[in-house]
Amino acid sequence: GKELVLALYDYQEKSPREVTMKKGDILTLLNSTNKDWWKVEVNDRQGFVPAAYVKKL
């Protein structure tokens, strides 16, 4: 099944490779191999968020 993460904080994208999320959002985790930036999918968009801003559910 898909792995989900919870947004712990708001995050505003700073580049086209990133995505914006709001605290409390549930996101689909696509890739967590990089310890600093995790790739997630939110609202049919894929991009990176800081790993410290999310936690695995």
Rank of each mutant, 00 (worst) to 15 (best):
D36M: 14
K35M: 11
V49M: 01
Y11S: 00
D44R: 09
A7L: 02
I26D: 00
N43C: 13
R17W: 15
L29S: 02
R17D: 12
R45Y: 05
V49R: 00
V40C: 06
P50I: 01
K35G: 10
E13W: 05
M21E: 00
D25Q: 15
N34K: 07
S32Y: 08
W37S: 02
T28S: 08
L6W: 07
G47W: 04
M21Y: 01
V54F: 05
L29W: 01
Q46H: 09
K56W: 08
G1S: 14
K56C: 11
K55I: 15
W37D: 01
V54M: 06
N34M: 09
N31T: 08
V54C: 15
D10Q: 03
K35V: 12
D36E: 12
K14T: 12
P16V: 09
D10S: 08
A52M: 12
W38S: 03
K2E: 10
P50S: 02
D44C: 13
E13V: 07
A51E: 04
L27S: 02
N31Q: 10
I26H: 05
V40L: 04
D10F: 04
K39D: 04
I26L: 09
G24E: 02
N34Y: 09
P16Y: 09
V42S: 15
K22G: 05
T20I: 03
V42D: 14
D10Y: 05
Q12C: 12
T28H: 10
K22V: 10
K22D: 04
Y9K: 13
E13G: 15
V19D: 00
W37K: 03
L4K: 11
L8E: 04
E18P: 05
Q12G: 07
K14F: 05
S15R: 09
P50R: 03
F48N: 04
L8S: 03
G47V: 04
L27G: 13
L4A: 06
G47M: 05
Y9C: 14
Y11V: 02
L57M: 10
P16T: 10
V54T: 04
T28K: 11
M21W: 01
K35P: 14
K23V: 08
W37R: 03
V19Q: 03
V49H: 00
N43I: 11
D25S: 08
G47A: 04
K55A: 13
V54W: 01
V49F: 00
Y9Q: 14
N31G: 07
G24W: 06
L8G: 02
S15W: 06
E13D: 05
L30E: 03
G1P: 14
R45Q: 08
L8W: 04
E41K: 08
T33Y: 10
V19G: 02
K2V: 14
E3N: 11
D25P: 01
V40D: 00
N31F: 07
Y9W: 11
F48S: 03
V54I: 08
T20D: 04
A51T: 06
Y11F: 08
T20N: 06
L29E: 00
Q46E: 12
L4R: 09
S32D: 15
Y11W: 12
